[in-house]
Amino acid sequence: MAEPFLTVSGLTRRFDVSKPWLNRVLEREDRQFLTAAADVSFAIEKGETFALVGESGSGKSTIAKMIVGLLTPSAGRIAIEGQAIDPNDPATMRVLRRRMQMIFQDPFASLNPRWRVGDIIAEPIRTLGLMSGSDIAPEVARLLGLVGLSAKDADKFPHEFSGGQRQRIAIARALSSRPDFIVCDEPTSALDVSVQAQILNLMRDLQDEFGLTYLLISHDLSVVRHMSKRIGVLYLGRLVEVADAKRLFHEPQHPYTRMLLDAVPDLALSGRRRKQVSGEIPNPISPPAGCAFHPRCPQVMPACKTGVPVLHATATGMAACILAGPPFAQTP
C-alpha cells in the first residue's frame, strides 16, 4: 500500500493557562496546563476527505492549527508524503506552504476588510513568489471564475459581499497557490443552510477537479457525513474513534460516538426518538481520570475510571474503549 498523504503521529499540544507569576505566588497555586490534544495519530490518503468531529474543547481546531504550522506541537510528528512539518525549518516550510492551505470558519474575519478582493486572493501568489506581476491579474480572474464569482469582483472590498460569497473568496485564496491539501476549519458553520449547501457542493466539485485532499474540521455530524470518507471522533483532546464514514454512522463503536449520533435531530421525521444525553463536557484543564468520557458514559465500568484506553482495531476501524477491545495504556 502506498504511503498516506498526511501522517500525524503522537501529536500533543499543551497550553500554559497559569495565572501570572505574581498571582500564583500570592494565591499559592501551581502552574496549570490545558492539554488540547493528547497523543493524536491518524493518516489521510491522497484525494480523500478526512473529518475530525468533536464538540467544544475537543482539540479539533488545535490539531488543524498545528498541521498548517500556526501552532508548534508540544510533541509528535506531522508529515506530508514523508516530509516532516517543522515550523522552525524555513526551507521545507516554504515548499509545504504552497502545498497546503486553510479555509477558516468566519468569512467575516478571515478577509482583511481594508484589502481589495483581488489583492486578498493574490496574496499567496505574491508571498510565495509563484508568478510575475502581469500574470497575476488574469490568474485572479480565473480563480474568481472557479469559485463562481465574476472577474470584476477583484476590485471590490469584502464588505460588499454576503457571507457565502466571502467564503468563496476565501476558497479562491486557498486555491491560488495550487495546493493539494486544504484544511477546512468549520467552513460552513457561520453560514445559513442554503448557502452552506452551495459551499459544500463547491468544495466537492473542486476536490473532483483538482484531486484535493481535505481535512475537514466540524462539529456538525450531518456535514461530516455528507463530505467525508473517513472520520475521526475527538473527545477532550483524544481520538476516541476512527472509522470509515458509512460504518461509523451505522455501527458506532465508542459510546461517545453513539451519543453524538443520538443527539442529532431527526429531520426526516422517521419517528426516531433521540435519546437524552446526560451531562456536559468537563473542564479540559482538569479532565476526569481514566477514560475522560467515563462520567457521562452509560456503560461505564470500574476499570474505566483508572486506565486510559488506547486506540485499537475494531470491526469497523479503531476505537479507544474498553468495550471495543481489551488493552489499556499505563495509568499516567
Binding site: 492551505q101 470558519q105 474575519a109 499567496p124
Partner: peptide, 11 residues
C-alpha cells in the same frame, strides 16, 4: 482574527 492567521499560514 482569522485574516492574520490566513497570512501566517502562507508564511
Amino acid at each position: 482574527k482569522e485574516y492574520v492567521q490566513a497570512a501566517r499560514v502562507i508564511g
